[in-house]
Every structure is written in structure tokens, then in C-alpha cells.
Design a protein around this nucleic acid. Structure first.
Length: 571
DNA sequence: AAACCTTTGAAGCTC
DNA sequence: GAGCTTCAAAGGTTT
């Protein structure tokens, strides 16, 4: 009985082997003249064939042996020193076998197009300098000198540094066409990409094909229902979560602003990004790109297509009507300032470095790191912010920050009003509105200012040179007028500064031997950039605070100037 | 569910 | 013009 079963099984396997061999011969016959390149696959097939025969023949002797498939799976594993090598090889083989018709990142179909200058290396890693290449790519209309953006290789590229983020997925390090590509939350979807998103392989034939310009529009995997969040044009600053700077609800797509005078590059960007609300949507619907400006956030009230657009010079309307119309106006957010841009870029990195997740704490760290940045690094963000404002103003000429003023309901107002009344009654010491929550323990490891991107603290030689640089003039008038930048929350600042002073003190003592100590957060006092008109940034180097002679002197200054008393005396 | 917290900077508002 | 307030992002926390 057993022999009969074995014989039957053997015959079945022979049939399988025969079929495989036939298939193989056919395949071989078809592609015989195609030359090499399939050795691996053929070898695998040979191996399988022989192993099947071998197994069937030997089955009688070793019925309990592992399956050949398992052994075959184990064999290569042993030949790789690292599991990831094995995985990579498996992926490669699968790719060679045609299992993967496209790259793993469906929304980056162009990553495989070398002629487009992708900053990514063939293995998916970001090429050196890629992080900075973004600038010239991301601001085609803003005449960012490429050289200026390519210089700084020190700045981190947070997302790909984060262990949470796949290397090639950083929106920061985007392809020049990223504005046309990444307006989707699905861009990091690990799932199979839509066939039309694969520029390499024809979904029908499986034959590699060149990208076609006509296929550009669908690069945004923006199905109407899938488009909820649109990444900011500075998407590279959105390191890991793929979160947009400005959220855009579905249905928020409008046509670009036609009245805006713009050059070609502006037009191209506009077509993909911007959609001012002041202009009624055209009858034909969306621009081919269908991409609105990220700063537009439709109000909660749904957009009604049939609703007539707001006529600026319309008839007098009742306050209720005006209010309704105002509510229906898409919410155009403020352009991000330099620090906000910096935060967006660095947040993920800080989060990765620390266990902290509270934004308040993260922001404290980022605030310190911001001050520890070198002038050049800050200048980069100021410039970005300036361009962002410029672009914003061009796109929304009628928009004003006033439009968003008072839109946010805040309990804080009541609190503040209440506290102010209390403040008038209480002394300065008891003036503290609330116990300053020190989210950030002073000695926390991640508390130290920027560490990996050339921060002043970590590069002792840099700060002195930077501060003593001729390009660093003495403190400006505005700086002198606002020496400690204590504007709104003196207590918190004071506490933070005092912690910084302690930090500085320890730093100074520890580095006194070298005589060249790093500036601490204490030195991160108001950098007079804000006082420099945006236009001035174009022509004149940024003005930075004058260097303090030494940390000790800085500490002395700090001690001599009780922070909360300097610019914000008690009412 | 919405505001708060926390940061810096830009802009609006008030006096 | 000085000084104050609001908002921009973020996400856990608080109300």
C-alpha cells in the first residue's frame, strides 16, 4: 500500500517536473537569443527541477526531510552575511523575476529617472547634497541660487535620519517635480502603485517604457476622495508623517489664480500648488494638476459648487449674509515664518532623538536649537520664510493676516484677562501667570542644542569665528531695544534662560581650559533678523548679535539683567 | 471636541 | 512707534 502511494506520488511529481521542464524549454526557446541575464532564474528552475527529481527519487529513503522549498529558502540565506542582504537579494530576484513592476514608492515614479537629477542614489538612499538640492528644485520661481542652497551639507535631513522614516520617502528630499508628485497622503503607501503611476513598466505589456509627458498629471494620486491633506510646498520640511503644512479638505481644489502676474516658473508652480480663493473656479473645473495652494483650508462649511462666488463689489448684504460668506471663504493660513519652517524640518529629528513626544517640550528644544544655529543656517530659513511670504502675497494679494485675526477661539483670552486683573493686584514676584511648566528637564540628553548639524555648541571653533566674523556686525538698534526678546512670556523665558545660564556656567567651567567655549542657549538671544526687512535680506547680510566676549561675561550680563524685568516690567 | 501648551517670527492692533 | 496680541505647526494634554 505504501509502495503504491509512493509510486503515485512519484508519478505526480514527475508530471510536475515534466511540465516545468517543458515550460522551461519553451521559455528557453523564446529567449534563447536574448542572451544572458536570466541565469539566476534559470538556475533556480534547474535547481528546482533537479531537486524535485532528486526529492522524488529519494523520498523513499527520507520521508521526513525538509521540503526542498524550505531548503532552497534557507540556502541563500546562509550565503548572505546579513539578513538584510538576503532580503535585498530576495527583493532583487523578485524584481528581476518581474514580481515588482515598479519601485516600492508608488508616488515617486520619477525616482527612477536618472535624467531628472533625482537626489537619490540608485539604492534609494539620498545622495550627498540631495537634501539641499531641494531648494533649487522647490523654488523654481523664486530664483533661489542653486549654489547657495547646495553649499550647506551640514544641515540634517531629519526624516531620513529618523529611524521611523524610510530613507527615500522624505518629502523634504523631493524630486524637482515633487510639487507635481507628492500631493497625496498615499505617496508612502507600501501597497502596489496604480499601474499608471509606474513609468517604468507598462501595466499591460510589462514592458519597460519611457515616461510620457502626458502622464504627468496623474502623478498626484489625488482621487477626489483621497485628497484630504496636501503637503506644503515645503514638503521637505515635513519629515516623517507626511503631514501637510496646510490641510486641504476634499473638494478644495480650485483653479489657479489667473490674474496673478507670474513668470513661467511661477505658472508651473501655481498650476500645481496654488488656488487662491478670490477667484471663482472656472467652469471647466480643475486645472490639470488639480492642486490647490496648501495654505487654503476650506472652512468647515462645505463648498457648494452652485454657490455664487463672493462678489467684492456686491450689493449691500445683511451682516448675517456677510458672516455666512465669510465662513465659507477658505481659510488661508499665514505663511510660515523662519522658525516654523525650521521646526517643521527638525521636529522629527528631535522626536527621534528624544523620547519626548509632547510638542510643547519638543518646541522648547527646537527653540534652543534654533538659537544655537549658525547665522548661515538661520539665514537659510529666514530666506525661505521670506520667499514663502513673497509667494503668499503674490498668490493672495488681498489676503491679510487680519483675515485670520481673532478666528481662533481661545480660552486663553479669558485666562489672560483674568490674570491681568490679578496681576494688577499682585506683586511682580507673584505675577507668574501659572507655574512655568518645564517640559524640558535641563539636563536631558536631548536638551542640548543642535548636535548633528553643525550647531554652534557642537562645533566650538565655529561660533567664535561666526560671531567674530566681519559679517556679524554689532547689535542692531532693534536688538538693543529688545535685548532679550522677552515679549510675551517673560517668566518662561526667564526660567529657560536661567537654565541656560546654568548650562552655560557648567559649559564655561568645563571648557575654560581651552578658552574657547561654545555659546550656550544663553547666547541665543534675539537674532535681529526679524528686524531686517525681508527685502534687505536680499542685499545685505543678516545682522547678528554681537559676540559676547566670553560665556562668563554672558552669564554676568544675564545675571545683571533679570530677564523678566528687562523688557516687560510689571504693569 | 476644542483649547492649551510651547517655541519664534510676522503682522495686526492699540495707544 | 512702542508694546501687546494673534496666528502659523505639532501633538500630547487638559478642559
Amino acid at each position: 500500500m505504501l509502495a503504491v502511494l509512493l509510486l503515485h506520488h512519484w508519478r505526480e511529481q514527475r508530471a510536475v517536473v515534466s511540465w516545468l521542464a517543458q515550460t522551461y524549454r519553451q521559455d528557453e526557446g523564446e529567449e534563447q537569443d536574448k542572451g544572458a541575464g536570466r541565469g539566476s532564474a534559470h538556475g533556480d528552475l534547474d535547481e528546482l527541477k533537479s531537486s524535485l527529481v532528486h526529492e522524488s527519487e529519494a523520498r523513499g529513503a527520507s520521508s521526513g526531510s525538509d521540503s526542498e522549498a524550505e531548503r532552497a529558502a534557507q540556502q541563500p540565506r546562509e550565503s548572505f552575511q546579513k539578513p538584510r542582504d538576503y532580503v535585498a537579494e530576495v527583493v532583487r530576484r523578485q524584481h528581476d523575476a518581474g514580481f515588482f513592476k515598479s519601485g516600492p514608492y508608488p508616488a515617486y515614479p520619477f525616482l527612477m529617472l536618472p535624467e531628472l537629477g533625482s537626489p537619490y542614489l540608485p539604492n534609494g538612499a539620498l545622495s550627498p547634497g540631495g537634501a539641499r538640492t531641494y531648494l533649487q528644485m522647490k523654488w523654481p520661481l523664486l530664483d533661489v541660487p542653486a549654489g547657495a542652497t547646495l553649499k550647506d551639507s551640514r544641515s540634517p535631513s531629519p526624516a531620513h535620519l529618523s529611524n521611523k522614516v524610510p530613507v527615500v520617502q522624505h518629502p523634504h528630499h523631493v524630486h524637482p517635480l515633487t510639487p507635481l508628485l507628492t500631493y497625496s497622503n498615499d505617496r508612502f503607501s507600501p501597497g502596489s502603485p496604480p499601474a499608471h503611476l509606474s513609468p517604468e513598466i507598462d501595466p499591460k505589456t510589462g514592458i519597460p517604457r519611457p515616461p510620457h509627458p502626458s502622464e504627468l498629471s496623474p502623478y498626484y494620486p489625488l482621487s477626489p476622495g483621497a485628497v484630504g491633506q496636501i503637503p506644503h510646498p515645503l514638503g521637505w520640511l515635513v519629515p516623517q508623517q507626511g503631514q501637510p503644512v496646510y490641510s486641504i479638505p476634499a473638494g478644495g481644489f480650485r483653479h489657479p489664480y489667473p490674474a496673478l502676474a507670474m513668470n513661467a516658473s511661477m505658472s508651473s508652480l501655481m498650476s500645481s500648488r496654488f488656488s487662491p480663493h478670490m477667484v471663482p473656479p472656472p467652469a471647466h473645473g480643475l486645472h490639470p494638476s488639480g492642486i490647490p495652494h496648501p495654505t487654503i483650508v476650506s472652512p468647515i462649511v462645505k463648498q457648494e459648487p452652485a454657490q455664487p462666488s463672493v462678489s467684492p463689489g456686491g450689493n449691500a448684504k445683511s451682516p448675517v449674509t456677510v458672516k455666512k460668506e465669510e465662513e465659507k471663504k477658505p481659510h488661508i493660513k499665514k505663511p510660515l515664518n523662519a522658525f516654523m519652517l525650521y521646526m517643521k524640518e527638525m521636529r522629527a529629528k528631535v522626536v527621534a532623538e528624544c523620547t519626548l513626544k509632547e510638542s510643547a517640550a519638543i518646541n522648547q528644544i527646537l527653540g534652543r536649537r534654533w538659537h544655537s544655529l549658525s547665522r548661515e543656517e538661520q539665514a537659510k530659513y529666514y530666506e525661505l520664510a521670506r520667499k514663502e511670504r513673497q509667494l503668499h502675497s503674490q498668490l493672495y494679494p488681498t489676503w491679510s493676516a487680519r483675515d485670520n485675526y481673532g478666528k481662533k477661539k481661545k480660552r486663553k483670552r479669558e485666562k489672560l484677562a483674568q490674570q491681568q486683573t490679578q496681576d494688577t493686584e499682585s506683586s511682580l514676584v507673584s505675577k507668574s501667570k501659572k507655574p512655568c511648566v518645564q517640559y524640558l528637564p535641563v539636563e536631558k540628553p536631548c536638551d542640548s542644542p543642535a548636535s548633528s548639524h553643525g550647531s554652534m555648541l557642537d562645533s566650538p571653533a565655529t561660533p567664535s569665528a561666526a560671531l567674530a566674523s566681519p559679517a556679524a556686525p554689532a547689535a542692531t538698534h532693534s536688538e538693543q531695544a529688545q535685548p532679550l526678546s522677552l515679549t510675551t512670556k517673560p517668566e518662561a523665558r526667564a526660567q529657560l534662560a536661567l537654565h541656560s545660564a546654568a548650562f552655560l556656567s557648567s559649559k564655561a567651567s568645563s571648557s575654560s581650559s581651552s578658552g574657547l567655549s561654545s555659546p550656550s542657549p544663553l547666547l541665543s538671544r534675539p537674532i535681529p533678523f526679524p528686524s531686517v526687512p525681508p527685502t534687505a535680506l536680499l542685499t545685505s547680510p543678516p545682522s547678528f548679535p554681537a559676540a559676547l566676549p566670553s560665556p562668563q561675561a554672558a552669564l554676568a550680563v544675564l545675571q545683571a539683567q533679570p530677564l523678566s524685568l528687562v523688557t516687560k516690567p510689571a504693569d
